[in-house]
Structure formats: C-alpha cells, structure tokens
C-alpha cells in the first residue's frame, strides 16, 4: 500500500524527510515532492486551496488509487485548553468554516490516539473570531485536503493527524518549534502509518493474478471486445478460477484466431463463455 504524506509547511515535512530518508523529486515544478519508502511526501503550502491542489495533483496520476492512503499531517490550533500543547490527534470530522460542509474519514484501524473534530478556516484566526459553540481543533488545510482526496479515494484511505501548536492567542510559532512538535510525535505517527499495511493484505483478494489479467486484456484487444464484454470476460474468468480451479491458459489458444466482424467476435465470445462457465 502506497502512503503519501501531505504537509502545509516545510518545517512540518522536515522531520519526515529525515526519518524516512526521503529524496527530493522533480515530479512537480511548483509543489515540493519527496519520494521514498514506505512513504512519499508533498509540501502543499498554506491554505485549503493549496492543499487541495497538491492532493489532487498527486492522486490524479496514481495508477492504482485503491492501493493508496493519504495523510494530512501538521500543526493546528485548539479552541480549548483541555488539550495539551504538542498533543497529537486523529481527526474524525473536518468542518469547512466557509461552506459549513463536513467530511468524515473512515477510521478502520485500531489506534490509541485521542480523536477530535477540526474546523478549517480560510485565514489565521484567534479566539476572538470564533463561533462560540465550536470546541475543537482549527487549521487552514484539512477541508481542502479532504475535498480533493475523497474525489479519488475511499474514506478509509484518507487520514488527518494534527498536533496542537497553540491556543489561538496570536502567538508566533517558529520553524524549529514546528519541526520539534512533529519530531516528538514521530513514533506515534509512524505507528499509525504502519498500521495501514494491514489493509493491503485485506484488499488483495482478487483470484486473478497480473499474468491472468494480462491474458484477458490480450484477448479483449485481439477480439476487439467492448468495454462491457471485457468486464464480462473478467467475471467469467473469476468464476472459472473459483469454481473449476483451473488455469486460464486454456484461453491462450484463442489468440491464434482472428475476427473480421461483430458476428465473429460474438461467436468467439460465446465460445469463451461456454469454456469458462458451462458445467
């Protein structure tokens, strides 16, 4: 499972770059990107729009989006002093202050972190700017990150982890302090990232392997199958593998035949169906 971290600031990214030994890549001209294993990282810049652009840019070029988890990790403010400075939270609800829209990740892993809701604002805020009824975390990126990520991924693939850096009292937080907050939580964050590996094995349930998919694709191109016929063929092949427990190599012989019109194509498709499904 590929994991991608998206931070707003370079100071938030620096501890990850060092911890995972990530290398700068020229994937995008204007969005700093660092690649490596088991994670890659992208520095989006500040604000929900930038976060959305970076997230969408990365995910749009993913070849296997079902095999990706994205993490928005960074510092945030808190409206309440019931939490501790430096405390790491798993965000379970993101509210966009501007639109009022809410986003919910699917938290399907077990973890020991405290959880919180978070509200994303368009600009820096202090306690004085606040809706009185809201109690929770505050940032400037998460709603943009969620809006973009959920366009490409399922809610269980979208994760937001935030570290409390201030209580919205207007204090200035320097880069070293930001990096320090991330460093102090690195072990816990790495634990969360690692726990998503379990999902990978869970998802690997397709009875057809890459070679078999390749053979089916060849047959599809060879017989010029329509999109829906191709998917039908894949389902028949799965049924054959599950029920008859045979090898799909029996289909390879059909690559020697050629078709010149729809009627011939449909005849061959029927032969394949019969071979795979008939008792």
């Amino acid at each position: 499972m590929r994991k991608i971290i998206i931070t707003a600031l370079h100071a938030e990214a620096k501890p990850f770059i060092e911890f995972f030994n990530l290398k700068k890549s020229n994937l995008f001209a204007k969005i700093p990107f660092y690649s490596g294993e088991p994670v890659s990282l992208c520095v989006s810049g500040i604000g929900k729009m930038r976060s959305a652009i970076a997230t969408a840019s990365l995910l749009a070029q993913e070849k296997e989006p079902h095999n990706v988890v994205v993490f928005n990790i960074g510092i945030c403010g808190s409206t309440t002093k019931e939490v501790n400075l430096g405390e790491l939270f798993f965000v379970n609800k993101v509210i966009d202050h501007g639109s009022g829209r809410s986003y919910y990740p699917d938290i399907v892993i077990e973890h020991n972190l405290p959880e919180s809701q978070l509200m994303t604002f368009d600009k820096p805020v202090t306690q004085l700017d606040f809706p009185q009824e809201y109690k929770g975390l505050v940032d400037m990126e998460a709603s943009g990150f969620f809006e973009a990520a959920l366009t490409f991924l399922s809610p269980h693939q979208v994760v937001c982890l935030k570290i409390v850096s201030d209580f919205l009292e207007g204090e200035v937080i320097n880069k070293a302090k930001v990096s320090g907050l991330v460093e102090r939580n690195m072990e816990a964050i790495n634990g969360i990232i690692s726990s998503y590996d379990a999902l990978c094995s869970f998802l690997a349930t397709d009875v057809l392997d890459a070679n078999e998919h390749s053979l089916l694709e060849q047959l599809s191109m060879h017989f010029r199958l329509t999109f829906s016929q191709y998917h039908q063929l894949i389902e028949w092949a799965r049924s054959y593998k599950i029920h008859k427990k045979g090898s799909l190599e029996i289909l390879r012989q059909y690559l020697q035949y050629s078709v010149s019109d729809k009627r011939e194509r449909n005849n061959y498709l029927e032969k394949l169906r019969s071979l795979l499904l008939d008792e």
Binding site: N92, D106, V108, E115, L150, L153, S154, H156, L203
Partner: peptide, 26 residues
Amino acid sequence: AKRVWIGDYKEVFGRLNQHFQIQKRS
C-alpha cells in the same frame, strides 16, 4: 466509543466510494 456529532445520518452513511467489506472490519 468515540462520539462524533453529525447533522444528518446520510452525511456519514451516504458518502461516496465507501468500501463495504473494509468497513465490516470495524
């Protein structure tokens, strides 16, 4: 259990692209 406040159940239940079997894990 962690409590999350919502306006309408469809905000959570009706989200797009949910994975039924992964959700069955939790």
